[in-house]
Design a protein around this nucleic acid. Structure first.
Lengths: 176, 176
DNA sequence: TGTACATCAGTGAACGCGCGTTCACTGATGTAC
DNA sequence: TGTACATCAGTGAACGCGCGTTCACTGATGTAC
């Protein structure tokens, strides 16, 4: 049956949101279209009324996730205080332990590198926006983004919690 | 039929080597057991004479890849010259463009973070060995490792070659 | 050193499963008049 | 404002495919005597 246009738009948004969260938590490959639709409160068949393919959803989910990151970057500033606060949040145990709510690049960067051109282009546009949001010296913004990203990737991959905390702490200190 | 023990050991090594390369190139999920065996010059059925499961192969491949990285780290030193040369090589277009021959952490870190405890423990042991190989101040070694790793992840994910080079260059400069 | 035989790496067909995607169908919505 | 009907988001069964894994079988190797 046909549904109110408003509800359809809300469902569409829910699909993107849940996909973004699930992809960041478990990666593109470990999340099925069915799981995303279930998380959005729908059945899998309806998926193709919203997106042409899983790959298209991945693209939209990356755009959405990068937008969230750009917003967070904007809320801090280019001043030293803002930069430090940003790095402290990024390198917190909370961010490490909740990839589903965290930075898309820290969760999916490597998978994006192996993905289709459109996905990489979307990722890239997001990164440019994030760098612009950070403001200040561009080289500095790139460097700090790379450093905190690498720190979180290592802290997440490692098994020993003490070692993991040590990694976060080391990168935080060196960036201050 | 039964095969000479020496040949069997050589084949075993070939499986690990090819698996490590393929996994770094395309990720665990995008490489099938059959592909690995084919690359090693065998058929897929023989796989289970060498490993109990694909996950076991992933673990061994991570250990192998981390060992390669530790060797490369050892060949440079803790002195300033060695550190710089290491970062320059790590952040080179060549390393960016050849993940199959490159750092395991830069290729598979995020996937390892979502993997079984044994895989993460193996990754961790490798990282400890790499840090020890770098020598010097441990915090500094962790920081530099995170920064170059993040730089390569971003440089690989991005689409525009100029932007990608700019990322490598920015991280290189800031680490000098 | 020679003989008998158990071992086991390797082959290729087969299995069950989950996945992305398709499709016939439904029926309230939204539009044309 | 009321009526007629085309639209289309959503359902759930079905599809084909590739995957990890299993299995019966092979036959040279390596070992026990």
């Amino acid at each position: 049956m046909r549904y109110p246009a408003k509800e359809t738009a809300a469902k569409h948004e829910r699909i993107v949101k849940e996909a973004s969260r699930l992809f960041r938590e478990r990666g593109f490959e470990n999340v099925s279209v069915g799981e995303v639709m279930k998380a959005a409160g729908l059945t899998h068949g309806a998926f193709y009324a919203h997106f042409g393919s899983k790959e298209e959803l991945e693209t939209v989910a990356i755009a959405y996730g990068q937008e969230l990151s750009a917003g967070r970057a904007r809320s801090h500033g280019a001043a030293k205080k803002g930069r430090q606060a940003y790095a402290d949040r990024y390198l917190s145990p909370r961010h490490r332990d909740n990839p589903g709510d965290g930075c898309t690049m820290a969760a999916l960067g490597q998978e994006v590198a192996r993905s289709a051109p459109e996905i990489r282009a979307t990722f890239e546009r997001g990164l440019e926006e994030i760098l612009a949001a950070h403001g200040g010296d561009r080289k500095e913004a790139i460097f700090r983004t790379a450093a905190v990203l690498g720190g979180v990737v290592l802290a997440r991959a490692v098994q020993n919690p003490r070692f993991s905390n040590e990694i976060l702490e080391s990168v935080r200190q060196k960036l201050d």
